[in-house]
Computed example of a mutant assay.
Amino acid sequence: MTAMDDLLARDAVPKGYKVAIFDGEVIMTPRSPEQFWTVSEVQAAARAAHIPRERLLGDVLVRFPGENEAAPDLTIVADGAARHGNSYDCLDVLAVVEVPSRPDDEKDYVRNVRKYGRFGIDCYLIADPFKQVCTVMTESHATGYAKVEEVPYGEPVTLRLVTGERVEIDTSDFPVRT
C-alpha cells in the first residue's frame, strides 16, 4: 500500500482539497473555482472531439513506477487503458492538464515537466489563471519536453494526441485570477 492509498483508505483528505505526494512532500491545496471551471472547459472540448468520458479522468491517481503517484487535474488516457482499482498506469496516459493553484507553481512548471516528460506523457498543458497563458508541451524526453508553445488566454489551443486525435480548446472563457 502506498502513502496515498493509506490517506485515501483512512478518508484523511478534507473535502474540497486536493492532496498529492510529490518528492516525498505532502501537498494539500484547496480546489479553486478557476481550477474547476478551466478543467470543465477542457473536458467539454475533449468530449466535443469524441473522446469518451471513460478516457477523461479528473483528480484520479496515476502511478509512476518507482516514484510517487500523481492525480492530475485532468488526464486523457488511451483507449483500452487498464484500471487498477482507483488508479491508472502512466504508460496509458496520452495527455495531462494542470491548473496551478498559486502563481509560479514549481510543482506544475518544474517538477511535473520533468516527471511527465521522463515517463513519456507526450502532451502536457498548463492552463495558468494567474499568467492568463496556456503552455502546451509536446515531444517528451528524459528531462522534459522538446517543444513548448505559449498561447495567451483568448486564443484557441489544440492538443494533438499521439493517437491522431485533436482537441480544440476555446480559451476565451477561461477564468483568471489576480
Rank of each mutant, 00 (worst) to 15 (best):
P72S: 07
V93T: 03
D122A: 15
E106S: 12
V62M: 00
D108H: 08
C123R: 08
A46I: 08
A78S: 07
D122Q: 13
D104C: 08
L74I: 06
L161D: 05
V39M: 12
E67D: 12
R10I: 05
A127Y: 08
V19F: 12
P33Y: 10
L61T: 15
V110H: 08
P129K: 06
G164L: 10
Y145S: 05
R83F: 04
R47Y: 12
Y116W: 12
C134N: 12
T163P: 09
R55C: 15
R160F: 14
V151Q: 05
V167Y: 01
D170L: 09
T38P: 00
H141Q: 02
E155I: 03
P156W: 00
M28S: 04
P52Q: 12
L7T: 02
K107A: 14
D5P: 06
D59S: 10
V110T: 11
V151E: 14
T2E: 02
L94E: 04
V167K: 01
V93F: 01
L125R: 02
D23F: 12
T75V: 13
R10N: 09
E155M: 03
R114V: 05
R31I: 09
A48E: 11
A78I: 06
T163G: 09
A146M: 02
A82D: 02
L57N: 06
V151A: 10
D105W: 09
T171Q: 03
K15L: 04
R53T: 15
Y88K: 05
E139F: 03
E168L: 15
D5V: 00
V157N: 02
D73L: 06
N68C: 11
E34V: 14
P103A: 05
G66I: 01
I121Y: 07
P103M: 06
V19R: 09
F36K: 10
R47G: 08
I76K: 00
P129W: 15
V176Q: 06
G120F: 02
V176I: 08
E106H: 14
T171V: 02
D73S: 09
E25Y: 04
C123G: 08
L57Y: 11
Q43G: 11
G144A: 02
Y17A: 04
T29L: 11
M1K: 07
H84G: 03
M28G: 04
E67S: 07
V39T: 10
R47I: 13
L94I: 03
E98P: 05
A9Q: 14
W37R: 09
I126V: 07
V162L: 11
